[in-house]
Structures are given as structure tokens and as C-alpha cells.
């Protein structure tokens, strides 16, 4: 379990090192390998951030699809913001609704909350166990189940496969 954490941290740190340097000479690669192996050993000895991640081909495929869904929602969110900001009447109908998530892993919940923050009209205000409190700029449904269907499920079905 711990090898998995250290391994994923190592891959991420080494990728960042290479991107930051931008060159691929031998001294830089060797230094990067050593440093990005030592840092996870110190700081990730007991962490369980990546423990729930699945490394199957299906999970990779769904990560890819998720990124596309997310980019599409991001563009839609900004068109929505543009429409609301420009129109002189300021068409907002804000409120705080409660939604429920099935995800268990901490990392998956964090990604879900971040995605909700960047998608049209919704904003994660608080997370309390399996409930998320969402500030919605244009409330369409005050009911927990209906709001869950509207906001959470489009991301949840992918994250469920990636994190379980």
C-alpha cells in the first residue's frame, strides 16, 4: 500500500521536475531521480492520499473522459457567468442546497468538490461527511435528491470508476 503512495508521488514529482527544467541532460535527470525519490520517503511514509486510486486501464480511460467532460463544463460555466454578468437585470436566484455523494475516498471527494466549484453556477460551501452544501446561483430544485441528480451525478459516475 505504501509503495503505491511513494510510487505515485515519485512519478508526479519527477514529471514536475522535468517540466520545470525543460532540458533533458544527464545531470538534471539524475538529480531529479534522486531528489524525487528521497522526498516521498520522508513526507509520504504514512500518508494515504493516493491509496484509493485504481491503476487499471479502465481507470485511465475514464480519467481521460473525465478531463474532457470537465473541460466542456468549464467552458459552459464561463459562458453562463458571462450571460449573468453582462445582462443589466442581473438574473440571479441564489440559495444554498444540500446534496449527497456516494464517494468514500478523500481524494475523490476533493476532486468532486473542485469540479463542482468550477462548473456552471455551483460552488461548494462546506463538506460534512457524505453531504455537500452547495451555493447555487440559480436554484432550480430545493430537494436533496433532485439537486444531487442535477449537480453531482455527471461527475460521480466517472469518479466512482477511478477511485471506487
Amino acid at each position: 500500500m505504501n509503495v503505491k503512495n511513494i510510487g505515485i508521488s515519485f512519478v508526479i514529482l519527477f514529471g514536475f521536475w522535468l517540466l520545470l527544467n525543460g532540458t533533458f541532460t544527464t545531470p538534471i535527470i539524475v538529480t531529479g531521480l534522486i531528489v524525487s525519490l528521497i522526498i516521498p520517503m520522508f513526507f509520504c511514509a504514512r500518508c494515504d492520499v493516493f491509496a484509493d486510486m485504481r491503476l487499471t486501464p479502465k481507470a485511465f480511460l475514464y480519467t481521460f473522459i473525465y478531463l474532457f467532460v470537465f473541460a466542456f463544463e468549464l467552458v459552459k460555466a464561463n459562458l453562463d457567468v458571462t450571460r449573468r454578468v453582462i445582462s443589466p437585470k442581473l438574473p440571479i436566484n441564489p440559495g444554498i442546497v444540500k446534496v449527497k455523494t456516494k464517494l468514500k475516498s478523500k481524494m475523490a471527494r476533493m476532486i468532486l468538490a473542485n469540479s463542482i466549484t468550477l462548473t456552471p453556477g455551483t460552488f461548494t460551501l462546506a463538506i460534512e461527511k457524505k453531504y455537500l452544501y452547495i451555493h447555487w446561483i440559480d436554484v432550480q430544485d430545493k430537494d436533496v435528491e433532485a439537486a444531487t441528480k442535477e449537480i453531482v451525478q455527471k461527475f460521480e459516475k466517472y469518479l466512482e470508476v477511478i477511485y471506487g
Partner: peptide, 27 residues
């Protein structure tokens, strides 16, 4: 997104008021 989520949550706990247009507040 992380920093603005932390800011919004803590501002809510601190008691920053919602606007008059707000329709529902489950929290």
C-alpha cells in the same frame, strides 16, 4: 478553487450575511 472554497466556508462560519435574493439556506 481550493483557496476560494476555504475562504467561503470560513466566511460563512464567521457570519458574512447572504443577500436578500437568497431563496433557500439548507446549511
Amino acid at each position: 478553487p481550493v483557496s476560494s472554497h476555504v475562504l467561503a466556508r470560513n466566511a460563512y462560519r464567521y457570519g458574512v450575511p447572504l443577500s436578500d435574493k437568497t431563496t433557500v439556506d439548507r446549511l
